[in-house]
Design a protein around this nucleic acid. Structure first.
Lengths: 239, 239
DNA sequence: CGTTATATTGAAGTGCGTCAAAAAGTGTGG
DNA sequence: CCACACTTTTTGACGCACTTCAATATAACG
């Protein structure tokens, strides 16, 4: 059940059998979430954190006029709100994109983990720091990259993250959000998102349509996006 | 010496005498940093984390053409790279803006803290999650807010953060970066940053010149920026 | 007092937004 | 299998926030 989480963590550090069992004992309750459903709202008091098992989910913030910024995308194996364990409430909402499946970890149980498993605690802490590193890369994209480069960069990131949890098929992967939602990740309107996707297609880099992405030239896509995966911390280290 | 750190943490939770002493014993070595000096570079292996005692520092990422995005600003009491404790190296550089003073916490000592002080560990974890919350708000700014609203929002944030560590004088505070660097926070060119500052001045909201910010109408500034401090987690809670 | 960094303004260009409409795809019931 | 409604994608025309380039003014500094 938590195999994707283990794949993600073991890509970065060694997890002992006891730690694995502690995680398994923590993530017991499972739930299915219908598409486009906001499951957590900013300000709500939290008593558990949510692990994504399958599907695709996002965190977003919005302004009064309805403009919305998706601040993070989550693939299977990601916690959606592990930061909520120490923050106690969120500063953003959390929403499903396609139908998704999640598992819950109660905060009292996580507190217990921090008392009994310091190394596992550091690894969970690492996982929230990895989220922050992705936020920083998105800040760089939003602040400095062109719309097309921003889109290209996002596809590189998602491809890399999905590969870790074995959710890619060669250079193709399902990525079930529409162009409006993709635009909300990129800080672009739907109209411009559509033009940017046409650009990437015409450049022979990438095809994205109706929830399926196919990368045609990964090296050129990476070069165009200036994608450098340093920020994804893909090497195994003792933490 | 670590008074600003204690002010910042005690704003969010209770710290016991033992925890305070453990922190004091951790942060011993102090160093002065000259202005505009990059003290940490991406990819370098880290063995200690850096606490800002006085001054102003930033983290930044850049693209090949030299375009730079400042992804975070740090005021006294902030760790510049506590996330580096679990990440082991950084995905960004860290630089001083004016001359600043820092203190160091060795990672082996931090590891020891995680073994002996679970609650303090959760509080340090919280502190990195707070950084991530600020990243998210900056993503919202960069993706959705106009240049002027972005600038206004940043001044609200810095004012609020400086107030916690008692570094404001009424509605005035020193904020020692130039317009080029401010632009690098906002994803704007120097030229446009200058125009945006003139706008805010002419609207009677704020005056910023040569490292000194004076807010003329905080309520209207907040309204204009849609500043909602939820993301700064200003309430004391048991973590 | 000269030299350099920083701030300011003007004019012109562009990437992306806005508005509007059409085309294509998807789902449902008959 | 088609009819219909609805969502999503795509295209066109036009406008604007911000950039670029260039020059000048002002402050900071040894």
């Amino acid at each position: 059940m938590i195999e994707t989480l283990l794949l993600k963590l073991r890509k970065r550090d060694v997890i002992s059998a006891e730690e694995e069992q502690a995680l398994r004992d923590t993530l017991v309750e499972v739930e299915d979430i219908p598409p486009r459903q906001t499951i957590l709202r900013r300000g709500e008091t939290l008593h558990r954190s949510v692990l994504l098992l399958s599907g695709l989910m996002c965190r977003y913030k919005d302004l009064r006029d309805g403009q919305r910024q998706i601040t993070a995308l989550h693939v299977p194996g990601d916690f959606l709100d592990l930061h909520g364990f120490t923050l106690k409430y969120l500063d953003h909402d959390v929403m499903s994109l396609p139908a998704s499946r999640v598992a819950y970890a109660r905060h009292d149980r996580l507190t217990q983990l921090t008392e009994e498993f310091p190394h596992l605690t550091r690894l969970l802490w690492f996982s929230t720091n990895l989220d922050a590193a992705m936020h920083r890369e998105w800040e760089l994209s939003l602040g400095c990259r062109s719309g097309a480069a921003r889109a290209a960069h996002l596809f590189c990131e998602i491809y890399t993250r999905l590969e870790i949890v074995r959710q890619v098929d060669g250079y193709a992967f399902t990525f079930q959000l529409n162009q409006a939602e993709l635009g909300e990740c990129l800080g672009l309107t739907v109209v411009h998102t559509n033009r940017v996707l046409r650009d990437l297609r015409e450049k022979g880099l990438l095809d994205f349509s109706r929830g399926l992405a196919v990368i045609h030239d990964l090296e050129r896509l990476k070069a165009f996006a200036e994608f450098d995966p340093t920020y994804l911390y893909l090497h195994q280290t003792q933490r």
